[in-house]
Amino acid sequence: MADKTITVEVLRYRPEQDPAPEFQRYQVPFSDDMSVLQALLYIKDELDETLSFRWSCRMAICGSCGMMINGDPKLSCKTFLRDIHPATVRVEALNHFPIERDLVVVMDDFIDKLERIQPYIIPAEPRSLDQGAYLQTPAQLDKYEQFSSCINCLLCYAACPQYGLNPTFIGPGALALLHRYNADSRDGASAQRMELVAAEEGVFNCTAVGYCSEVCPKHVDPANAVNQNKTTAAADYFARFLKPKGSGK
């Protein structure tokens, strides 16, 4: 099949035997249409069945195969060996997450945050079936559509220096999704979500680095979502003092 070979360096960590993560090198024959994920699958099938990594769709839809590739957070299915050859491919688990095994990271922190943002439409008023479907104009769709493309691949978390320094930060991906629901004309729960946006864990941890938006494989712009919410959180902070006492928070 292949006429060329490429060196793949994989950060291995098997907690039952390795005192610390260390690199292991493999020689992988490849053709121009092969992705880094396919190289890992070749290693697993032909060279070393003990290698562990997450994957599913092979076409940048499922968000499972995010990893550090030569230092950058990338989807391994969307990164091609021909673009790296003749250099070595260095593959590591995503930055800023604990390693469960080899390239598999512990996602619990993100899943907890995802639940916290209430990532579903909460209508302002209950709607009955006879009221029919919600209607939305193209302009209303535009407000949230790009933020709905998130596939929870965590590349933006591996890219975010502030999440790396302070893991209590809600982080770019979850905040982009929070904004996706806040910005939806069918949703009425912005005020409920404001507690989290304005909290010490919220948007003000961001220092507008913008690397999250650069690495997003689905062209979501989390930095934009976070910074729009800084403005609304600041307005909410000062608006409290203008409301009469006892009118709620």
Binding site: T168, A199, F204, A233, A234
Partner: peptide, 15 residues
Amino acid sequence: MRRPLKRSNAPIFWG
């Protein structure tokens, strides 16, 4: 995540 959430006073400094 800690509960209850503490409101950040960052808007003053950020403003």
